[in-house]
């Protein structure tokens, strides 16, 4: 029974929520919100369990003077201090009808001057961690990592003033760079006597370089000709390959959620219910 009742509840609620997605008529229109509120109430009650567990573990550590008990002492001091000034509304107007954030509230002061700066400090560590993770991710260890590195460099350039300035002062520099890279690859194919890749890469390289030179001639004659800029390239990378990859992941996630939800509703997946025995 310990499993059958939760499975039945999961099935009934899951099916109702499926209907709710397609039926805007009452009472279905309010179901989602009502169930969310019910869940929040349950979670609020469960918070007592969490707080109790926190106190139990850390108080035990302190009483046994286990290694690192000093950290536990700081945790417990913060926990009980916030609990006390919050429950008794120290510094602010007391009574149920007054908010915790009222003028002069110690709770609000502790939140503003202790909790927020500590949170911001932890969040700020992200800047350093992004730098170290990027360094590791962008090392050109293999072909995929090299493509990632080049794309990242272009985006870094394009999102700063340098990128725009580079192609404005040196129009066609991207085409020349790309053409030179292709010409080098073609030369490598020639040295390896791989004629088909040579023909393909060489044709593209010749086209890119010829188009750029033609563009210079048009521009020199006072005409108008489009040459690629770094910001445009960045925009293309973000809108085409990056977005395509992201959408592929999103589609996979959606299908995964459908499959997982069906497994839960149908009771095929039940390991989250835990033990069948007391």
């Amino acid at each position: 029974m310990r499993r059958q009742i939760p499975l039945l509840i999961t099935f009934v609620v899951g099916v109702i929520m499926l209907f709710e997605a397609f039926i805007p008529h009452p009472p279905f229109d309010q179901l989602n919100e009502s169930l969310s509120i019910t869940f929040d109430v349950l979670a609020a009650f469960a918070f007592v369990l969490g707080g109790g567990n926190l106190a139990k573990i850390h108080l035990a550590k302190i009483s046994r003077s286990q290694p690192g008990w000093g950290y536990s002492a700081v945790t417990m001091a913060g926990f009980f201090a916030m609990l006390a000034i919050g429950l008794f509304k120290v510094g602010g107007p007391s009574g149920v009808k007054h908010a915790l954030e009222a003028e002069g509230s110690w709770f609000q002061a502790a939140y503003d001057y202790c909790f927020l700066p500590l949170s911001a400090t932890t969040f700020s560590l992200l800047a350093f961690f992004v730098a170290s993770a990027s360094y590791r991710a962008f090392r050109a260890k293999n072909r995929e990592a090299t493509v990632l590195l080049i794309a990242a460099l272009i985006i870094l350039l394009g999102r700063t003033l340098v990128g725009a300035a580079l192609t404005e002062t040196l129009p066609g520099s991207l085409e020349l760079l790309f053409g030179a890279l292709l010409a080098y690859l073609a030369w490598e194919q020639f040295r390896s006597k791989r004629w088909i890749p040579l023909a393909l890469i060489g044709t593209v390289a010749a086209f890119v370089l010829a188009r750029t030179l033609y563009g210079y001639l048009i521009l020199a004659g006072g005409g108008d000709f489009y040459l690629l800029t770094v910001p445009d390239l960045v925009n293309w990378i973000m809108v085409v390959p990056q977005l395509a990859g992201q959408r592929a992941i999103m589609i996979g996630i959606c299908l995964g959620i459908i499959s997982m939800s069906l497994r839960l509703i149908l009771g095929v997946e039940r390991s989250y219910l835990g033990s069948d025995t007391d």
Binding site: L42, F47, L49, G50, G51, N53, S271, L273, G274, S275
Partner: peptide, 18 residues
């Protein structure tokens, strides 16, 4: 980071150890 996850997680781990 959530109390309900803690209670569910305990059930899951207990079952696994059993």
């Amino acid at each position: 980071s959530r109390s309900l996850v803690m209670t569910t997680g305990r059930e899951v781990v207990k079952q696994a150890y059993l």
